[in-house]
């Protein structure tokens, strides 16, 4: 089967049409969830119910201003996400806006960069003190290891690992992920 490019690649209007559809789909789902009738939305927007129905049936190419008005009328906000999905020729088609929203919600709805940084997997500082002794011709390696786990990670306290002994060389990593333990 020969697969050509996605239909939104035809021209900018086609891509905007898809964005408008994605946007209206999100609003339609929100209205279902609330629930809120199209007549109420029409009232809030100062439009006729027929016009709102028309927009929901065939959003066409919405402008950013219109999208913002509609979203705000439902108490929602709007974000423009530019992304690189390694499909420069647009053969697969755009990623539905809802996917980004789902990911944001699953990530705990971070509100700013601080919240995103706090969510990042915690890094553990490992301090290794080691003693290498020669006994009866063999090398004996003794380590006293302490780790400090960042409290922001949600893991409280610190972990002390003591007296790991080995007769072999041990690879010491200065930074370890907590799940390595």
């Amino acid at each position: 089967m020969t697969q050509t490019v996605h239909w939104t690649e035809k021209n900018t209007g086609a891509f905007v049409n898809r964005l408008s559809f994605d946007f209206i789909t999100q609003l339609a789902k929100k209205m279902e969830l609330l629930p809120l009738r199209q007549s109420t939305l029409a009232q809030r927007l100062g439009l006729t119910e027929g016009r709102v129905s028309q927009i929901f049936n065939n959003p066409g190419n919405l402008t950013l201003s219109r999208m913002t008005e509609y979203a705000r009328a439902l108490g929602m906000k709007i974000a423009i996400v530019a992304y690189d999905d390694r499909d420069p020729g647009n053969e697969r088609g755009p990623i539905t806006s809802e996917i980004f929203n789902i990911c944001w919600e699953r990530a705990g709805k971070p509100l700013d960069f601080w919240a995103v940084r706090a969510m990042e997997s915690p890094r553990v500082a490992v301090n290794n003190e080691a003693v290498l002794e020669k006994q009866d011709g063999n090398y004996k390696y003794t380590s006293l290891t302490s780790m400090n786990i960042d409290r922001k990670s949600g893991i409280s306290g610190s972990v002390i690992v003591t007296s790991a002994e080995s007769e072999f060389a041990v690879n010491n990593s200065s930074m370890l992920q907590p799940n390595a333990f």
Binding site: T25, N58, G93, T96
Partner: peptide, 22 residues
């Protein structure tokens, strides 16, 4: 413009979306 309307619905289904109105 009408074909785009239908294509959007096709894509939404292909992508695993659920929306009884479509």
């Amino acid at each position: 413009n009408k074909q785009r309307l239908v294509r959007n619905r096709f894509d939404y289904w292909l992508g695993g979306g659920i929306h009884d109105q479509y």
